[in-house]
Design a protein around this nucleic acid. Structure first.
Lengths: 217, 217
DNA sequence: ATAACAATGTTATTTTATTAACAATTATTT
DNA sequence: AAATAATTGTTAATAAAATAACATTGTTAT
């Protein structure tokens, strides 16, 4: 029996890098390049060529010895792995600066991922469209998410509303959440959760800057 | 000879968690709690109590057996480790939505880290103040950074300007950089660089959502 | 007083991620 | 035609991070 390839066991970090490789590759393609070496990808991404080759080995892609990797083929393979055929719809809850920043990042790029709805409680925002994304009242969350079949939610509300927002999204049937507030949220285990905290990142940079200047002394 | 404790060898992940512990602890403190158990911290942060205890062991902090950790003491210790006494000044380059979002996150909180300048090329923004942070012309970058002694830069410009901005910041003598554009940048090894790419994160969430729904079949 | 319990602190183990090593291959040069 | 060089693909080794195991220690209950 032929087993369907699932890419089930790829390391988390490899998944993240594949997404980044693809972006770099698309850029190269648009500049007319057709092939690329592992060390070129590595240089762009600040990693080692071995890492690149190992990631590509894991997804079963082979280059040619003196030409490197076929950019188009590789882009397609990565798309096969990380995209879903039908596309996935995303909602942003909290149309403040951060929410709008995310919408801008995505607008214009044709992805299998599309942000199709924003939610907010501010009446001035409700009813408007930002970069093609309509802003609905937060009270409509469940309805719209179910109507549209939205699977992923991005939380960009003020920290104090984070957990309530998360609960509402989960109740609406969301499958994956991305929490950008500094407040950790709880979700049932069947919801995939990723959290990112900008303050922590900045404090980390500050720590290493401090360490390095101490070391110099 | 007494050796000064440097916390030089703390794992990167521990540093990030310490920052998060502190935030959770400050919250608990403001609610009148004086002590906390490792499993309480763990629950808040979605990690295991062992992880918490191990991190605290690494920084040499001891709790008491049936009362847990003294919140105030622990906050002070963490501050000792990750903050620098004199404080560190930060600049944001790119006062778009993302830049302003970051400023809002920070405003009001009294940190050893303070955002003291924003830069942009848009004449409508230059000269304004956003949440107490003045916006200067990008052409003033070097002067202001050196005058103010700014050590950390956050890059929130459009991707196509990322590398030039990075070069300018490095030339101005910046010590640490935080790049929020999806375009990886190159910096000399003496500059500490952290990069974060929102699109990658979202694609990763999408991948795991997809994987899980495939698994259900 | 003693047993049971619920914590901490630390060492050992396992898992995950990265890096190194190197055989194999093919183009290029001599 | 042989030597050299550059590159891939893969296995082996190392490093980093997380988890498990468990001894220790007070506290509470009996």
């Amino acid at each position: 029996m032929e087993e369907k390839e699932t890419f089930n066991h790829l390391p988390h970090k490899t998944i993240a890098r594949l997404s980044q490789y693809r972006r770099a590759l698309l850029l190269c393609l648009s500049r007319g390049k057709s092939h690329i070496f592992s060390h070129e990808i590595a240089t762009i991404q600040h990693i080692t060529p071995v890492q690149v080759r190992r990631d590509l080995m894991l997804i079963g892609y082979s280059g040619t010895l003196r030409k490197g990797y076929n950019i188009k083929e590789l882009i397609n393979l990565i798309a096969n792995i990380i995209d879903s055929e039908e596309g996935i719809k995303v909602a942003i809850v909290g149309m403040g600066n951060l929410g709008r920043a995310l919408i801008n990042y995505f607008s214009g790029k044709r992805h299998k991922l599309s942000i199709v709805a924003g939610f907010d409680t501010n009446p001035d925002k409700i009813g408007n469209t930002m970069n093609g994304v309509p802003c609905y009242s937060a009270s409509m969350m469940k309805d719209i998410i179910q109507q549209e079949g939205i699977q992923i939610g991005i939380i960009t509300v003020p920290a104090e509303n984070a957990s309530q927002t998360a609960n509402e999204l989960v109740a609406a049937g969301i499958k994956g959440l991305l929490n950008y507030t500094p407040k950790p949220i709880d979700v049932p285990e069947y919801v995939y959760l990723e959290e990112y905290d900008m303050i922590t990142t900045l404090e980390k940079v500050a720590f290493y800057v401090k360490m390095r200047s101490l070391e110099e002394e």
